[in-house]
């Protein structure tokens, strides 16, 4: 029973990936052929040239890395004041809003002010808009770090003679590391997967993997759309494989949504 359901789960996950893979090699695939009748690997071999897919992937990678570094760093430093704020509930509610709202509405709202600030249509504006979302997520996730227990750890270190700086570098950072890594991955993915904000703030002048995918679907080029989709799936797959079994850590906290 267990094995059957495991196989079912894997199939449910792998079958769509396999189909995308076949499509990314399909040069001609007329209806109703069960398989393509002409194959070509050019979506992959010409990654640097074809439709700028490679460039879009690199752009996505750059934006997502920047967003993840800034959001995680800023979130780590500021999450304590959220966790210890008197109006914590209200702050948490505010932080959840962009997600409950659907990023599209946030994007539509930011569009005009970004336009006036000269931030529309360029990479900085897109990264900033995604950063707002990613920062909110980082704070929600990392405010789970500031438990009474972590406070006790820091106090314990202080009475053993740790200066405030040592308490951060030798106690807090090592304790927070699993959570920080998780936060980095998740905020990276928020940016990596985002379509709405690239569309609205980028205004068609910033091409990332997600906007490329949509463009290819619109123009009927399912081969390149499938290749974009596979590239989009790559980082979450890597993250799943490397983080699949987190250490049973007393501190591995998650925000309750």
């Amino acid at each position: 029973m267990r094995r059957v359901s495991n196989i079912a789960l894997w199939t449910a996950f792998l079958a769509p990936v396999a189909l995308l893979l076949v499509w990314s090699f399909a040069w001609r695939w007329p209806w109703p052929a069960p398989l393509p009748n002409r194959w070509r690997a050019s979506a992959w071999t010409d990654l640097a040239a074809t439709g700028g897919l490679g460039a879009a992937a690199l752009r996505s990678l750059g934006i997502a890395t920047t967003v993840a570094v800034v959001a995680t760093g800023l979130g780590f430093v500021t999450s304590r004041s959220v966790a210890e704020a008197r109006a914590r509930e209200a702050l948490q509610w505010l932080l959840h809003l962009p997600f409950a709202l659907s990023p599209v509405v946030l994007g539509v709202g930011l569009e005009y002010s970004f336009l006036r600030a000269g931030l529309a249509g360029n990479l900085v504006g897109v990264a900033l808009a995604q950063g707002i979302l990613a920062y909110a997520y980082a704070v929600i996730l990392l405010s789970g770090l500031w438990t009474a227990r972590v406070g006790a750890f820091l106090e314990g270190a202080a009475t053993l003679g740790a200066t405030p700086r040592q308490a951060w570098t030798l106690v807090l950072l090592p304790l927070a590391r699993p959570l920080l890594a998780l936060c980095f991955v998740q905020t990276f993915l928020i940016s990596w997967f985002d379509y709405a904000l690239v569309l609205l703030i980028g205004g068609g002048r910033v091409a990332t993997l997600t906007t490329s995918l949509y463009q290819f679907v619109q123009s009927g080029d399912l081969r390149l759309a499938a290749a974009s989709a596979l590239l989009l799936l790559l980082p979450p797959l890597v993250a799943l494989v490397t983080q699949a079994q987190p250490r049973p850590d007393a501190l591995a906290g998650e925000p309750d949504p």
Partner: peptide
């Protein structure tokens, strides 16, 4: 705290 030379042992080993 870190300059008092007093070590505090919590009820929890921490």
């Amino acid at each position: 705290a870190h300059r008092r030379g007093i070590v505090y042992l919590n009820q929890e080993p921490l």
